[in-house]
Amino acid sequence: MFNVPMEVLFKVWRQKPHQSPQLQTYKLEVQAGNTILECLNRIKWEQDGSLAFRKNCRNTICGSCSMRINGRSALACKQNVGQELEMASSSNNGDVPTITIAPLGNMPVIKDLVVDMSGFWDKLQKVDPYVSTQGRKIPEREFLQTPEERSQLDQTGNCIMCGACYSECNALTVNPEFVGPHALAKAQRMVADSRDTEVEARLETYNQGTQGVWGCTRCYYCNAVCPMEVAPMDQIGYLKQDILDRKDAQSSRAIRHRKVLIDLVKQGGWIDERKFGVFVVGNYFRDLQGLLSLAPLGLRMLSSGKFPLSFEPSEGTKEVRSLIEAVQNHD
């Protein structure tokens, strides 16, 4: 099937700075095994030399050809026509299958499929993505790691900085100050490096409000689109746990949110919503201003009959508690 020729429509979103995007359609005779990058090359060489897109290695190493293909960020050199047509549930024009290609999200468009990645790189710099070690002061000496220590860096070390996770990040879309999943995955690589001597300072930096780890909304898109299985959301979770292990509930609302959630689930099998807001926002009745801020919401819930007047623990409370405690003891 990979060698059977077929006609496919490629709908490409084209755009120049400060102009509205326009959808342009190209028809190609292709094979299922052709990569999207090969198809874009043919469009540029055979039909429209003005089409702009990035490319380099053609072998899922450099990350240059990252773009949105049928609505999700991916590497054009990795995805082929057959895969895209199999995944597409609709997008057909009559009997001719269609593949839609657009630039990455969360970045300004320079031209067509080429985006300005300066913000992407600037946010990466904010996590200081270099190993901090005394080795910098002794250039003639090597600071070796055991195979076990080095293996802790394998997953995060696979990141090729393609921008796919950054493109799909919902947190960035609503909060431009969030540093981004790519940067925090790299941050975890630094924290996990046995040679780094600035772990405590790093974790303090990554703990800064919604700019750092607490800005992640755990939507899972970064994990879903990462072509190298770095799993940025998982790496953010490891950073959060490192911070939680070092902080108590009085440190910040973000810390309290996580600790209260776990404590309430341990107590009742699920969250007692009456206590959750009071403990998190009201800081266990210590924050009068926080408690007063809950009043309007509480009154609206009462008037609409949506405020829970009682709480009934789940039948599996003991099992849930034992599972949480087993995980905590294992960690």
Rank of each mutant, 00 (worst) to 15 (best):
Q79S: 10
Q208G: 03
D331F: 12
D95Q: 09
F307G: 08
G180D: 04
V4D: 15
P17H: 08
K78C: 11
G209T: 00
Q267H: 11
Y221K: 06
Y284Q: 07
K123T: 10
Q79I: 11
I101V: 13
K247A: 14
V281T: 15
A326C: 02
P227W: 07
T210R: 15
T205P: 04
V131Q: 03
S50T: 14
F307W: 12
C65A: 07
A88D: 15
L9H: 14
D193T: 06
T35D: 01
G215N: 03
G305H: 02
I36Y: 00
T205Q: 14
D48G: 04
S73M: 02
A224N: 08
L113Q: 01
P5M: 08
T197H: 10
T317S: 04
N80G: 08
T35H: 03
I99W: 06
R150V: 02
Q24E: 13
I43C: 04
L203A: 01
G298Y: 10
D248G: 11
Y221E: 08
C169M: 07
S151G: 06
S50C: 00
C165V: 05
Q31I: 10
S167R: 03
C169F: 07
T35Q: 03
L292E: 15
W13G: 02
P232N: 08
V131Y: 05
V225G: 00
M117N: 11
V260P: 00
C77G: 03
L28G: 01
R256V: 08
E7V: 09
K44E: 14
V8A: 00
T217W: 02
E7W: 03
I271H: 11
G212P: 06
C62W: 11
R300K: 14
A224R: 07
Q79D: 07
T197E: 12
V131F: 08
E148R: 06
H182S: 15
M6A: 04
D263G: 00
E84G: 06
Q31K: 14
S64Y: 03
E38K: 13
C165T: 04
P97K: 04
P176K: 05
Q155W: 12
